[in-house]
Simulated scan of single mutants.
Amino acid sequence: MIRAMYSGISGLRANQTKLDVIGNNIANVGTTAFKNQRIRFQDMLSQNVRQATGPGRNLGGTNASQVGLGVQVAGIDTTMTPGNMQTTGGTLDTAIDGDGFFVVGKGPTDAKIVIKKDDMTADTGTTMETMFTRDGSFTLDYNSNLVNSDGLRIMGYATTADGKTSISYGSDGKRTMEFVDSESEDLKADEQQLVPLAIPDEIEDGGEKLKVKSFSIDKNGVIKAVLSNNKVTALGQIAMASFKNTEGMTKLGKNLWQNSANSGEAIFRNGVGTDATTPNDSGYGDMLQGMLEMSNVDLAEQFSEMIVASRAFQANGKIITTSDEILQELVNLKR
């Protein structure tokens, strides 16, 4: 009876945690790029009433007799399947159709993420605090820096062509941007490092400052701007990262993720025009401008799981009340 009561208590705790997970999923049904979570249970230690015995000359073997001591949470998994795409029309809204994460950073403008060329992972020379997100609702600050809704910098590659570099930073943090012909056969990304990206109001071309009329983001993440003389320049390429085990990543809140001991290090996507022997860009999704990824929470599934968890919670509560009634009968035996 006492064991049954404590088994019921463990069931109440486990199903309360399940309701907490379901409640969080439902609360975030409208959160951009939110990833649904599920909970798994496992039985606790079982107490041996009688040990198993092997067959002998005169008697056959007997199985063990065990009494389970309740349930516990085995794990809370994150479902990393992509959510549906929603058209927003925003020129800076970007969704990832497939695998991968945007790379965001916190630090001064001259901070950078150094990349090891052999395996496309971050090097120890990295000075930018790095995080990852699937939320592509980008904005521009007053200094034309490309940032997310919390002001974190959007990291990417500088593009180069004909000896010019689209974006670079001095030791004082001052930004320099040059015209880089987006149609040049020599166009390639600087894969040595990731830098904060920007979309300025004007670009210098041969000593002449030209206004930016419009810009677009192609499926590879290259930001192309149309200038007042109708020339098109490549301002940079938005970086993407992937992980060996995306389910092992740690949620930081605010639609941000961080790699953990079980997710592995971030593997960055090769930039445009890469000279790598085996490019890895085919393993990443395409960027879709003017769209955002929605939450992948299925409300029908969540409400069904809520009913199951609610009934299980009630059933475990009934175990406790029934055990209490039996204990009361034992107390009443001596009257």
Score class of each variant (00 low, 15 high):
Thr159Leu: 15
Ser323Pro: 07
Val232Gln: 11
Leu299Arg: 07
Ile267His: 02
Leu288Pro: 07
Phe215Leu: 13
Ser7His: 07
Gly207Phe: 08
Gln193Tyr: 09
Pro279Ile: 13
Ala64Ile: 11
Gly54Ile: 13
Val331His: 00
Met287His: 10
Ser171Pro: 07
Gln237Tyr: 09
Asp324Ser: 06
Leu327Gln: 06
Met291Lys: 15
Pro279Arg: 14
Arg57Trp: 06
Thr165Pro: 04
Lys164Trp: 05
Pro196His: 04
Tyr142Cys: 00
Gln192Pro: 01
Ala276Glu: 13
Ile217Gln: 14
Ser46Cys: 05
Glu202Asn: 15
Gln314Leu: 09
Ile26Leu: 12
Leu292Trp: 14
Asn148Trp: 08
Lys318Cys: 07
Asn148His: 06
Ala122Leu: 04
Glu247Lys: 10
Asn316Phe: 04
Thr133Tyr: 12
Lys112Ala: 14
Ala239Trp: 04
Ala241Arg: 01
Ile238Ala: 08
Asn316Cys: 02
Gly170Tyr: 12
Phe101Glu: 05
Asn84Thr: 13
Gly271Ser: 08
Glu129Gln: 12
Val104Gln: 05
Gln16Tyr: 10
Thr53Ile: 13
Gly273Thr: 08
Asp324Pro: 04
Asn15Ala: 01
Lys35Asp: 04
Val226Lys: 14
Ser65Pro: 01
Phe313Gln: 02
Ala27Pro: 07
Leu252Arg: 14
Phe268Glu: 02
Ser295Leu: 11
Thr126Ile: 01
Thr233Asn: 06
Asp218Ala: 13
Val308Gln: 00
Thr233Leu: 06
Lys254Asn: 15
Pro196Asn: 01
Lys18Phe: 00
Asn25Ser: 04
Asp186Ser: 15
Asn28Glu: 09
Gln328Met: 07
Ala14Met: 04
Thr133Ala: 11
Ser137Lys: 15
Pro196Gly: 05
Leu146Asp: 08
Ile199Lys: 12
Val29Arg: 13
Gln47Asn: 11
Ile39Pro: 04
Leu227Ser: 06
Ile9Thr: 10
Leu256His: 00
Asn229Phe: 02
Lys112Met: 14
Thr159Arg: 06
Ala14Glu: 00
Ser184His: 03
Val195Gly: 02
Thr94Lys: 08
Asp119Ala: 01
Lys244Gly: 02
Glu265Gly: 14
Arg335Asp: 00
Glu247Leu: 05
Ala111Gly: 14
Lys106Phe: 08
Val114Thr: 10
Ile217Ala: 13
Ile115Arg: 09
Gly70Val: 03
Tyr6Leu: 11
Asp281Tyr: 10
Thr17Leu: 05
Thr81Ser: 15
Leu235Asn: 12
Ala161Asp: 04
Met131Phe: 10
Asn58Gly: 07
Ser65Asp: 11
Gln66Asn: 13
Asp118His: 09
Glu191Tyr: 09
Phe313Ser: 00
Val29Tyr: 13
Asn25Phe: 01
Asn316Met: 06
Gln86Met: 14
Lys211Gly: 04
Ile2Cys: 02
Leu45Gly: 02
Val114Asn: 03
Gly264Glu: 03
Gly248Gln: 12
Glu202Thr: 15
Gly68Ala: 09
Val21Ser: 02
Leu187Cys: 03
